[in-house]
């Protein structure tokens, strides 16, 4: 102790600490060279960052991949003016809100159910989680069969109770909702395991405190589980909202945006315009999707993050 205090007196104080710091940073440079970023950075820069940046230019052009003519904001105007393109915005937002909302509610319920003292708990957890790992195309095809009008299992089951089921995927008003529900079926397992992890990390003391006060199961849920699993809710909302805004594969295998354009999302419109050879228009769709994701995700992350700090 005394020696350390004597240090600055005997030696040139500030200089020595500076040299020490320089030594440490030199050591750090040698130990953790920035060059180790390089392989990842190169792939990421070339395959992801450059195309993302170039999109902002190509979106303003009429483009054939080989040459491009600058047309200003024409592509964006088309996107916002044409009904069959504009519908993509509503649908994308609807899809993201429905899927993430249902995943939060059902994921929380299943999470509570599967952390209670339930026989076959492990089995049920596996059953709920497995669809997350199955290919989206396979799920889409299977559910197209199950939802087929009249002959599909869902309509047959409804017929048993005397309800004549709609043409789920063929009807303009039900197509997008049906796909969204299948998305929930496939994705709720992920929300559930996130909630299970969140609920299991709540200290038992809180539940004991409720028990001491004579609280019911509802009290336990309302005043302990629900507020303290907020980080899990936050993750589920963010994850499923990002997924919902970008979703393409399930919609494409089940309805291809049909009937007409009624279940088109921005991602499926991007693909359709690409197939039709309108590369500039397709890229404008990408830019719009980028803007939509940013405009929604940045405030959402901020708002939810703030809530997380205060609770």
């Amino acid at each position: 102790m005394t020696r350390q205090q004597a240090g600055p007196v005997t030696g040139p104080g500030p200089d020595s600490t500076a040299r020490h710091a320089r030594g440490a940073s030199a050591r750090r440079r040698a130990a953790y060279p920035y060059a180790m970023y390089l392989p990842a950075a190169v792939v990421y820069l070339v395959i992801f960052l450059i195309p993302t940046g170039m999109a902002f230019y190509f979106a303003l052009t009429r483009w054939t991949l080989f040459d491009s003519t600058f047309v200003g904001l024409d592509n964006f105007r088309d996107f916002l003016a044409e009904q069959n393109l504009r519908i993509g915005f509503q649908n994308t937002l609807f899809y993201a809100v429905v899927t993430s909302g249902l995943k939060v509610v059902l994921g929380l319920l299943l999470g509570v159910l599967l952390t209670s003292k339930l026989r076959l708990r492990g089995f049920l957890r596996s059953v709920v989680f497995f669809p997350v790992l199955v290919s989206t195309v396979a799920v889409g095809i299977t559910f197209s069969m199950l939802l087929a009008p009249d002959t599909g299992l869902v309509d047959k089951a409804l017929a048993l109770v005397g309800v004549s089921g709609p043409d789920w995927l063929g009807g303009a008003s039900t197509a997008l909702l049906s796909v969204a529900l299948v998305d929930v079926w496939k994705g709720v397992g992920l929300a559930t395991v996130i909630y299970i992890a969140g609920i299991l990390s709540i200290p038992q003391d809180y539940y004991q405190a409720v028990a001491v006060d004579g609280g019911t199961a509802w009290h336990r849920f309302r005043h302990v589980t629900l507020p303290l699993s907020w980080p899990a809710t936050y993750s589920v909302i963010i994850l499923s909202f990002i997924g919902g805004l970008r979703s393409f594969d399930l919609i494409w295998t089940m309805t291809r945006g049909g009937p007409g354009f009624t279940s088109d999302t921005i991602a499926s419109i991007i693909y359709k315009q690409y197939q039709a050879g309108f590369f500039g228009l397709s890229t404008a769709g990408n830019v719009l999707l980028f803007l939509m994701v940013t405009v929604i995700m940045v405030p959402l992350t901020y708002l939810l993050g703030k809530r997380q700090v205060t609770t």
């Binding site: 920035y34 070339v46 195309p51 397709s282 990408n286 980028f290």
Partner: peptide, 28 residues
């Protein structure tokens, strides 16, 4: 500073939808 930039890029990569046709253009 470089670490902060890398963190930002990692988060961007998780959120931003890839620009498809420009990626095709680049691969070509």
């Amino acid at each position: 500073k470089l670490g902060a930039l890398a963190n930002f890029l990692v988060l961007s990569g998780l959120i931003i939808p890839p620009a498809v046709v420009p990626t095709i253009w680049l691969l070509q």
